[in-house]
Design a protein around this nucleic acid. Structure first.
Length: 491
RNA sequence: CGGGGCGUGGCGCAGUCCGGUAGCGUACCUGGUUUGGGACCAGGGGGCCGCAGGUUCGAAUCCUGCCGCCCCGACCA
């Protein structure tokens, strides 16, 4: 086990916190509920942004930016929406500070009260639809396919680094369409983009599905999601895509004239993923030695550690290393040469394992003599000595293999942890003993869903899109059911 | 917001019951020896003990109030 890292077996959530802090991804800020994302962690977020941003652009979306502040009246326009967020909003009430008369410090100037309070956005549907009203007159203005990268604030009672913080970073897409079909298609298109990204970049397999009435986004007609399974058997919602129907168009009076000259409300979607993905990435792959980051998101692909006894030896090693790092960089890989003489090689090995660098090369005097270099992969811990001249050719396919292996491992784990159950007794028993995903029949009522949640803490993660029609009986009520839904305890 | 725990050099902790002016590990700095899986030796710097009152000759320690953090629950991406 890594030094100072709690093992997963001993305490999974402490293990997670240890990794985030020790691998230098993030730390708790002195600002309650907020985190500082450190350079190494932010670099992962930048890779996520780059990957997703390209996919959004490739599917016709463009980026824009809307205000952080939302007038209270905007939020109030869509009833279920306000209700959904009311309990966790930060509110700006004043716009000026002043020195206290008694010299006790700086106070809020009571004379500088805002006429209308501003809400720090918990999400931007309302400000954005307020703009869309001005932008949309005709079917020719549609569709409107806009995304924004932003921060949002939800006043959380209990926070966990990356998984739940009061302020977090995300992207939120907001689109407007002329027809219901088109908006529904967009909702599912984005769901596919998310699933593609999470599986192929993050190496985390997901279940695509639809949320139950009880779990959907306030203000949406339908909420779709991708659900991932963490190593402790709990589910993590990794992304959501909402079909908003005409709810926001009606709330903000966004109408357009169709080809037929008739006036109609616009159809909308919204969708988002957040820095929470980083939490999922950690919990899906990493081990007791530290992070395991898939190559496609790794801030550093290859780290090179020289093993030397003298300056002269280091110079000879550096000369050789410069050749391969230049070549790897030319091919587009991120390479770090750690030639510090203040730490021993063993220390560096442990450090880069902790940080999840996919490939480590080590080269010393022995290798110089033999024309070799040691190549180690983080995911399997496998080490082998290879000819120096071949190493740059070996790395690209190895990175591909590591990416694939990480996914395969997570996929296999999910398969093993996905259980079909037909009785409530089995469900409760296996939920405790085994954890993971459960496919079970449900009568479709909110009452049953709530009762199961109350009794077991497990929720319906989604109604999987690919689940086949199958006659069965609800495991709780015994009423007829047409298909199985996905249950799990969740983050 | 309810229940529990904790605030002491950067980090992790001991000392608090039983008051006497702060210690350990680690990290840090300097010098030397080391370097193929988290080096060693020697020397050195750093803390008004969460904050504010009170008791006392004297408070990290006792009393009162406040603040913050962590864990468990309810709510949530």
């Amino acid at each position: 086990m890594g030094k100072g890292i709690t093992s997963r077996e001993e305490d999974y959530s402490q293990w997670y916190i240890d990794l985030v802090k020790k691998a230098d991804l993030a730390e708790n800020s002195d600002v309650r509920g907020c985190m500082v994302i450190k350079p190494y962690g932010y670099s992962i977020w930048e890779s996520i942004q780059q990957g997703l941003d390209k996919m959004f652009k490739d599917t016709g979306h463009v980026n824009a930016y809307f205000p952080l502040f939302i007038p209270k009246s905007f939020l109030a326009k869509e009833a279920s929406h306000v209700e959904g967020f009311a309990k966790e909003c930060a509110i700006v009430t004043h716009y000026r500070l002043k020195n206290a008369e008694d010299g006790s410090g700086i106070i809020v100037d009571p004379d500088a009260k805002l006429e209308e309070e501003l809400i720090v956005r918990p999400t931007s549907e309302t400000v954005i639809w307020n703009s869309y009203k001005k932008w949309i007159q005709s079917y020719r203005d549609l569709p409107l396919l806009i995304n924004q990268w932003a921060n949002v604030v939800r006043w959380e009672m209990r926070t966990r680094l990356f998984l739940r913080t009061s302020e977090f970073l995300w992207q939120e897409g907001h689109t407007a369409h002329a027809t219901r079909q088109e908006a529904e298609k967009e909702t599912l298109l984005i769901l596919d983009v998310y699933a593609d990204f999470v599986e192929n970049f993050m190496g985390v397999p997901v279940v695509k599905g639809k949320k139950s009435e009880g779990e959907k986004f306030p203000g949406a007609v339908d909420t779709y999601c991708i659900e991932a399974l963490m190593q402790d058997g709990k589910a993590l919602q990794a992304g959501t895509s909402h079909f908003l129907g005409q709810n926001f168009a009606k709330a903000f009076d966004v109408q357009f004239t169709g080809k037929d000259g008739k006036l109609d409300y616009v159809w909308g979607t919204s969708w988002g993923v957040s820095t929470r993905l980083i939490g999922g990435l950690i919990m899906a792959h990493s081990d007791d030695e530290g992070l395991i980051i898939p190559p496609k998101l790794a801030p550093i692909h290859v780290v090179i550690v020289p093993i030397f006894k003298s300056d002269e030896e280091l110079e000879r090693i550096t000369e050789k290393v410069d050749v391969i790092s230049a070549e790897l960089r030319r091919k587009g890989y991120s390479v770090k040469y750690d030639n510090r003489d203040t730490h021993k090689p063993g220390f560096k090995f442990a450090e880069y394992e902790l940080k999840g660098v996919p490939i480590r090369l080590a080269i010393g005097a022995r290798d110089l003599e033999n024309g070799t270099i040691e190549m180690a992969r983080r995911d399997t811990k496998e080490k082998k000595v290879v000819p120096f001249d071949e190493v740059t050719a070996l790395i690209p396919p190895l990175l591909v293999e590591i990416q694939a292996n990480i996914y395969q491992k997570a996929f296999k784990f999910r398969e093993e942890k996905t259980t079909k159950v037909d009785s409530y007794e089995d469900f409760k028993k296996l939920l405790e003993e085994k954890g993971g995903f459960f496919l079970a029949h449900w009568d479709g009522t909110q009452e049953t869903e709530a009762a199961i949640k109350e009794e077991t803490k497990a929720t319906i993660r989604c109604i999987p899109l690919d689940s086949p029609e199958e006659d069965g009986k609800c495991m709780y009520s015994g009423k007829p059911s047409k298909r199985r839904v996905l249950f799990a305890r969740a983050y």
